[in-house]
Structure formats: C-alpha cells, structure tokens
Design a protein around this nucleic acid. Sequence first.
DNA 1: GCCAACGTTGGC
DNA 2: GCCAACGTTGGC
Length: 152
Amino acid sequence: MYWLFKTEPDAYSIEDLAAEHSATTRWDGIRNFQARNFIRDKLCKGDEVLIYHSSCKPTAIVGTAKVVSNPYPDPSQFDQQSTYFDGKSSTANPRWFSVDITLQKRFQKPLPLAQLKATEKLSGMVLLKQGRLSIQPVTPEEFNAIMALSSR
DNA sequence: GCCAACGTTGGC
DNA sequence: GCCAACGTTGGC
C-alpha cells in the first residue's frame, strides 16, 4: 500500500532522514487518532511512503521512503521526559503507534502543493481534501502519477 | 502573522 | 451523547 507522511522540515526534514546513521528512522510522535488508526491497523512492512514537507515554502512532496517495520507501540508515549509523553497510555493498552522507515529517494525537483492541485489525476488526493491529516492513504494511481511527475 | 478548518476536551 | 470552548495545524 501507499501512504503520505507529513513533516515540518524545521522539526524533521527529508535531509535529516537522509542523514540518519542508523539508516532507519522511527516515525514517532503521531498524536491524532485517525492517523494512529492508519498506522496501527493498515501500515505494513514494505509499504511505500511519500514524504511531504508542511508549513514551509513551498510545501511539497520531497521524496519517498519505505516502511521497514510493522507497527509497534511508540516508546515516546511512556517517556516522561518526552514532549510526546501520554499519561493516559499504558504498556498493556498503548494508545500510539510507530513504524520505522528508510529513505528511498529524494526528488530532484520537489513537487509543490500548487502543482499537485493543478494535476487532474491527483484531484482526489486526501492531501487536497483533508489538509490536516498527517498520515494518509495514497492510491496506486496517485502514487504512480506522482512518480511520473517527479521524474520529469 | 492571520485565520479557516478541524480535532479534542469537558461540562451538562 | 451533545456541543461550546479551546487548541492546533497548516496554507497563504
């Protein structure tokens, strides 16, 4: 399956993802129930992910990554030092989930939101309809259209 | 920095 | 279970 993950590059960018020494990165700190449900119930090892930079100029899809783990409880929810700590969660009944990803490809030319909006094939994208969702599904057709655009 | 959209919380 | 108040996201 295909997904889009949002990140604010000021906090964590695709450059950071590319620089990870471990080669895999835990996608943690997701604290939205709809996004959580996608992670916990749908994400699988081997899935492919579009990386989107939000709250920057210009906002854009900047590359792709691969999911390299199955979902597991996000450790930061149990860490009292973490800003992502959640006292309402427990190890027996964790609220929040993570996956590990690894960078696959940085686009030579990022695809700005305006370009996505101008592309007929992408008019149904969740990104264009539900702007605030930070983990969202992408159809194979959308994914392929984006890959084609990025290689032009 | 503004503000619209939308998610979450909590009182009732 | 409703809904008002509030907080956050994210494009512009």
